[in-house]
Write a protein that binds this DNA or RNA. Structure first.
Lengths: 131, 131
DNA sequence: CAGAATCCGTTTAGATACTG
DNA sequence: CAGTATCTAAACGGATTCTG
C-alpha cells in the first residue's frame, strides 16, 4: 500500500506541458470568470461588467484580448444605427468545450466550499507558522 | 435559436461564490501544479522542486502553506536519525477529491493544446489590436 | 458604448544568501 | 534538508479620465 513513487516529469513549467497550461491561461483573476459569464450566450462589454462589477475596463479588455488570442472567445462588432458601438463577445467552440471541465471544477468548489472555509478557519485559529 | 439571456448573478466576485473560488485558490501560478505533483503520493520539499525546478524555495513554501491552510495538503515531519530533517507533503482527502476535476481540466488542455497554440499563432500573425 | 491612456498601490515571482 | 530573510523586477489589479 505504499504510495507509488513514479518519478515526476521534469517539464512541468514548460509552456507546452498541458499541466503548466492551466496556470498560464487561467493564472489571472478573471479569465475563468469571464468564460463562465459567457456560458449562456454572447454578451456585450458592459454586460460583462455587471456580474464582474469590480473589474475595471482596462482589466476586462486585457482579459478578453487574452481569451480572444487563445481562440476561446470571439469578438463581433455589430452594425448599429446609433453612433454608439455594439460589440459582442461569445465563446468559440473551443471556449465552449472548455466550459465542460470548468463547470466540473466549479461544481467541486460548490460541493466543498464548507470544507475549505472550515479548514481555513481551523488553520487561522490553531496552527502557528512552522519553524 | 437566440441564445438564452438569463440574467447573470451579480455576486461573482464574492468570496463565497464557488465561481469566484477558483481564481481565489488557484489564481496563482503554482497551486494547481503542486497538487498535480502530489497525485502519486507524498513528496518531500526538495522532491517537489525537481519537476517545478524554476520555483524558488520561498514561493514553494508560500504555495504549500496556502494549500495547507485550505486543507488540501498536509505536512508531516518524520523522525530521522540524521540531523537533517524529513518533511513530507501529501494530499488530504479533500485535496485528493480536487484531483478529479483538476485532472479533467488537464486532459482538456492536453486535448486542445494544438488548438490553443494555433490560435495564438494566428492571432499574433494576423490581427492588429482593436481600435 | 467600447475601450485606450495614465497613474499608482499591491501582489507575485525570482534570485540569492543564510540558518536550525 | 527544509526552510527563512532580503532585495528586486515584473505582473496584476483598480481608479480615473478621455475619446472615436
Amino acid at each position: 500500500m505504499a504510495a507509488t513513487r513514479a518519478p515526476l516529469p521534469a517539464d512541468l513549467f514548460d509552456e507546452l506541458c498541458p499541466s503548466a497550461l492551466i496556470p498560464f491561461r487561467f493564472g489571472d483573476k478573471w479569465s475563468a470568470l469571464v468564460i463562465h459569464c459567457l456560458r449562456d450566450g454572447p454578451r456585450r462589454f458592459s454586460e460583462l461588467r455587471v456580474p464582474l462589477r469590480r473589474v475595471s475596463p482596462k482589466v476586462l479588455t486585457r482579459t478578453l484580448r487574452a481569451l480572444e488570442r487563445d481562440g476561446l472567445v470571439s469578438r463581433t462588432v455589430r452594425p448599429t444605427t446609433t453612433p454608439t458601438r455594439h460589440v459582442e463577445y461569445a465563446l468559440t467552440p473551443l471556449g465552449r468545450s472548455l466550459l465542460v471541465p470548468l463547470t466540473a471544477l466549479y461544481a467541486w468548489a460548490a460541493d466543498h466550499l464548507e470544507d475549505l472555509m472550515d479548514a481555513r478557519e481551523a488553520y487561522e485559529g490553531g496552527e502557528a507558522p512552522h519553524g
